[in-house]
Amino acid sequence: MTGTSPKISFRGVHHVFDVAGNPFTALDEVDLDIADGEFVTVVGPSGCGKSTLMNVAAGLLEPSGGEVLVDGGRVRGPSPQRGVIFQQYALFPWMSVRENVEFGLKIARMGKAERRARAERFIELVGLTDFADALPKTLSGGMKQRCAIARAYAVDPAVLLMDEPFGALDALTRVRLQDSLLDAWTRERRTVLFITHDVDEAVYLANRVIVMAARPGRVHRIIDVDLPYPRTEEIRLSPEFAEIRNQVWHSVHHQPSAPEAAPR
């Protein structure tokens, strides 16, 4: 983080779910700042509140306490300035790739010519130009996710929130999409909050890795990833990468146990 104002700020974020009539603390007093243009990944054990954290940032969930600020303004609901990409592709099956990418722009009443030009730009960015007229049912899982990324980028969000977007993909496709995402991020420099359960993915993508602790969900450790971009196979296989990966792995899998916090 630099001395400039953060793009995203979590301030004492606390959230309690009702589970079969019993309170469950998913997040407990989370404080975190993310800089403009920063790529931050979040990892942690099952039940650490990773998805809850993202849903609060997206405005899809009102926290029980605390607040999330984007550009200094409190998040009070969903906004086109915060693009959200889930593990499920959520594409309209009756629409082509181009129509899916244009959808948000159409809702925003952008003119047809400008809408088409903008969609084409982001379809090219994710490498789907040859499939612009294809329906989702004809695409592979990786291509569907690239389409979802293009659709999110097209509406020009300041922030991208991604919840395990590559989790359902095979290993090779996953690596290719990581590189595709980083290529787009390098050119566009959106602020990215990326949730993952994969330690290697977390390190490969990020400027910083946020390690969460579970029950209650809280920030356990923040690890800087001092590796150059563009990230390459050589970097992935380097001793420096292995050292950071081991730090993250140990922080995720060898945490001291903590008692469940009382709901507030």
Rank of each mutant, 00 (worst) to 15 (best):
E99L: 09
Q88V: 13
G77P: 10
G47A: 09
I34F: 03
G37D: 04
D71P: 09
D130E: 15
G83H: 04
R109N: 13
L105K: 02
F131A: 14
Y89E: 08
D33M: 06
V84P: 02
T129V: 14
F24K: 11
T25V: 15
T41D: 01
G83E: 03
Q87Y: 07
F39H: 01
D36N: 14
A132S: 14
V84T: 11
T129Y: 13
I123D: 00
S96K: 04
R115S: 10
E99G: 07
A90D: 13
D133P: 08
A20K: 14
G127N: 11
R76M: 15
N55Y: 13
R116I: 00
G83Y: 04
V43I: 09
T25E: 10
E29P: 02
V42S: 01
G127A: 13
D31Q: 11
R116Q: 11
S46K: 08
G49F: 01
L125Y: 07
K50W: 05
N22V: 15
F86R: 04
V42T: 03
A132T: 12
G37H: 03
M110S: 05
G21R: 06
R74V: 15
D133C: 07
G47I: 03
L53V: 06
E62A: 15
A57Y: 02
F92W: 14
T41K: 01
G104Q: 06
F122E: 00
G111K: 10
G47K: 03
R98D: 04
G66D: 04
L105Q: 02
N55S: 14
